[in-house]
């Protein structure tokens, strides 16, 4: 679930912006560097596979962690292409990039 949430963030929110004149990060606070809140995420469907991995840990849980981010960001980019016909090749995909393409 965390991986999917950060995938949404990767695809549509997060952008560390470096000023070209002196190399400073210009949006170095959470007021300007946006991450998703509940209203951005909506409903996530998390499937439990029901096959514990007891070698990994006593609880049997499996962690794929950040691998979940990769697929989610790509899936959102594909969904935007599917919906608009516009292939944006630079994250985050924001309305101004869609308007300009």
């Amino acid at each position: 679930m965390g991986g999917m949430t950060w995938g949404i963030s990767f695809a549509t929110h997060e952008d560390g912006i470096v000023d070209a004149s002196n190399g400073r990060i210009v949006n170095a606070s959470l007021a300007e560097y946006h991450v998703p809140v509940n209203a951005d995420v909506g409903v996530l469907d998390v499937s439990v596979i029901g096959i514990p991995d007891l070698k990994f840990n006593p609880v049997g849980s499996r962690g794929i962690g950040e691998i979940g981010i990769t697929g989610t960001a790509a899936a959102i980019a594909n969904a935007i292409y599917n919906a608009t016909g516009k292939r944006i090749r630079q994250y985050p995909i924001t309305p101004d990039k869609l308007l300009a393409s």
């Binding site: 912006i17 000023d19 002196n22 400073r24 210009v26 949006n27 170095a28 300007e32 101004d96």
Partner: peptide, 28 residues
């Protein structure tokens, strides 16, 4: 952001007459 970051010398609001770093910077 260019007002908030004092490492940018140019900001007419912070330092009157110094110019504006945002105009040629990131200003989305």
């Amino acid at each position: 952001y260019y007002f908030n970051d004092v490492s940018f010398a140019a900001c007419n609001k912070r330092n009157p007459g110094s110019g504006c770093a945002a105009l040629e910077g990131y200003n989305r």
